[in-house]
């Protein structure tokens, strides 16, 4: 029974989509289309290309925000992890940002930067950056002392320790910080489109809601969740592949 996990996954999907279909047929609410209606709407949006145009629009602030967050997040994180002084000064800001409901900053961002792309990029950055910074700095700080000692005992310079020991040792955690950042960035990008100005997928959701075209609305939501999940899963696969040696038993097993 090698394909038992796959079979159960299919069964599980069939159960959930079946329940969706049945709930839509009853219907439990006038605003609850069936699974088949929603998928038909998705196919027709794919057919006329409108959903692809919408994604091009949605992915703009997302990609831009994530690139900025990754660049500055890893840089700041490395710095915080290496310097006690810098950690004292900047660490608390990111710790507070990590726990605080940052979505509340959106109205201010809109006032400062207007309702254009800048605000949306900022929303993505604000959501994605803290976890990237904190993962990076934590990973740098938790580099096993014994391999740092090892490098020093073999006369490594500070730069050698950073480039040959700390960064490779920290990169699995940094990468998973990036993955969590992408996940938070998706939340931010959609929030921005729903709250600031409806563009892209957010526009499809808002517009079809206002004209009560519920199948299209569900289709758009379904597609963005699907996209996010597939992308994040791919990142996780890549992560496991790249850092195979690091993850499996190192010092103590």
């Amino acid at each position: 029974m090698n394909n038992r996990p796959l079979l159960l996954k299919l069964l599980s999907a069939a159960l959930v989509f079946g329940a969706w279909e049945i709930a839509g047929r009853i219907p439990i609410s006038y605003a609850f289309p069936t699974f088949i209606e929603s998928m038909t709407a998705l196919l027709s949006m794919m057919g006329d290309g409108s959903i692809f145009l919408a994604y091009a629009e949605t992915l703009k602030p997302l990609v831009l925000g994530l690139v900025i967050s990754a660049f500055f997040g890893i840089g700041i994180g490395l710095w915080i992890g290496l310097s006690a002084r810098f950690e004292w000064l900047f660490g608390p800001i990111f710790i507070v940002m990590q726990t605080a409901p940052l979505a509340a900053l959106i109205p201010i961002l809109v006032m400062v930067y207007g309702i254009g792309l800048t605000s949306k990029v900022f929303v993505v950055c604000v959501m994605a950056m803290p976890v990237i910074v904190l993962n990076t700095s934590g990973a740098v700080r938790n580099t096993p002392q014994s391999i740092k000692d090892m490098a020093k005992s073999f006369l490594a310079s500070d730069r050698d320790v950073l480039v040959k020991i700390i960064i490779p040792a920290a990169s699995p955690i940094i990468f998973s910080g990036l993955r969590l950042g992408v996940s938070a960035g998706f939340i931010g990008a959609i929030l921005a489109e729903l709250k600031i100005t409806p563009t892209g997928v957010g526009d499809i959701i808002s517009y079809s809601r206002s004209v009560a075209d519920y199948p299209s609305m569900y289709a758009a939501i379904f597609s963005i969740i699907l996209l996010a999940v597939i992308f994040l899963n791919l990142l996780e696969k890549l992560e496991n592949y790249m850092f195979e040696g690091n993850n499996r038993g190192y010092v103590s097993d």
């Binding site: 096993p144 014994s146 073999f154 050698d160």
Partner: peptide, 24 residues
């Protein structure tokens, strides 16, 4: 120095680990 917990680089193969002191 030879370390109690070996202090090998998990991302490097045996050859690079053994040559690491010379690399530095």
């Amino acid at each position: 120095f030879v370390f109690q917990d070996f202090a090998l680089l998990p991302w490097a193969n045996v050859l690079r680990n053994a040559a690491f002191g010379l690399e530095l």
